[in-house]
């Protein structure tokens, strides 16, 4: 098939997706870029909004908080999701039932999930009551600058782990049994089976989960908004909360748009790094 013919076919297949992505994502995003380059009351482009947000300790704080949060939450969620997926892949009886239960939290509106966890994390709430049964003293949870971010991580993991687990289970089930049989004959133990069969075979689904989970966590917003509003002392002020606060509460659209652009660029760089990291001799 000729190069041009291939291009034509590709365009035909891609047209609906490209058109909808451009109109419904990229064009509005360009509007945000446009807005980010307009300083308050200005009509010409400048980087004033960017210099402003980078001079603002609150924004810089939220950048660091977001990066720190990502470094913890992504490996944690993926490790737990992968662990559960491996366990569930053994096809023990009733696993289907448990899998459904673990996936369910993602179906609840986040605003309701956040209310439930706010009850859980109240100093006089359920989690302290549970801990009390094991003789652990009252924890401050959302009211402590040291613990609040951990609480957010627990809540978003409760929502996310089942979701990511589902994709990993699908990936595991696509690994041909014959590969395991072959290495078992060669005397491989279960760690070796995992290391030399499961992991390499799971590379593509795992890339998907890694990238998608990272993006999802960078964009987390409702739980922060409802549980902590970014506090105490900015300890949970993730960047999306900062964007929302600027856009809809402070009414500073220029700096909200600039913060959005910074966020997108930051995530894009990280995602590209992840692709490089996960690629197999440049195959991806």
């Amino acid at each position: 098939m000729t190069r041009n013919k291939k291009l034509l076919w590709a365009l035909l297949f891609l047209a609906p997706a490209i058109i909808s992505v451009i109109i419904l994502r990229l064009w509005p995003a360009l509007m945000a870029l446009h807005e980010s380059l307009l300083a308050p009351r200005a009509s010409t482009y400048s980087f004033e909004n960017y210099t402003y947000i980078f001079s603002d300790p609150v924004f810089r704080g939220s950048l660091w908080t977001t990066l720190f949060y990502s470094v913890i939450v992504n490996p944690l969620q993926i490790a737990v999701a992968l662990g559960l997926a491996l366990l569930m892949n053994n096809k023990l009886p009733t696993t289907g039932f448990w899998r459904t239960l673990i996936l369910l939290p993602v179906a609840i509106p986040q605003s309701v999930s956040a209310v439930v966890w706010s009850v859980g994390f109240r100093p006089d709430g359920l989690i302290n009551a549970l801990l009390g049964m094991f003789g652990i003293g009252e924890q401050r949870f959302l009211t402590s600058p040291e613990q609040a971010l951990a609480c957010i991580i627990i809540m978003v993991s409760w929502v996310g782990v089942g979701y990511w687990m589902t994709f990993l289970i699908a990936g595991l089930q696509d690994i041909p049994k014959s590969l395991y049989e072959a290495v078992t004959i060669d005397g491989a133990n279960s760690w070796q089976r995992f290391r030399y069969v499961t992991l390499p075979q799971l590379r593509r689904p795992l890339t998907f989960v890694l990238v998608a989970d990272t993006v999802a966590n960078f964009l987390v917003f409702a739980p922060v908004q409802i549980l902590t509003k970014g506090g105490p002392q900015g300890s949970t002020n993730l960047i999306m909360n900062e964007v929302y606060t600027r856009a809809f509460l402070s009414g500073d659209k220029g700096s909200a748009a600039a913060a959005t652009v910074v966020l997108v660029l930051m995530v894009l760089i990280i995602v590209l790094l992840q692709f490089r990291l996960m690629s197999d001799k440049g195959a991806d």
Binding site: R3, L7, L26, P28, A29, L268
Partner: peptide
């Protein structure tokens, strides 16, 4: 399909889900 501009289109698809929906 191997066509010119494939990685560009793929990048566009990736960028499209990096954009925070609430912000746009």
């Amino acid at each position: 399909i191997e066509f010119p501009g494939r990685s560009l289109v793929f990048t566009i698809m990736i960028v499209s889900f990096l954009i925070p929906f609430d912000a746009i």
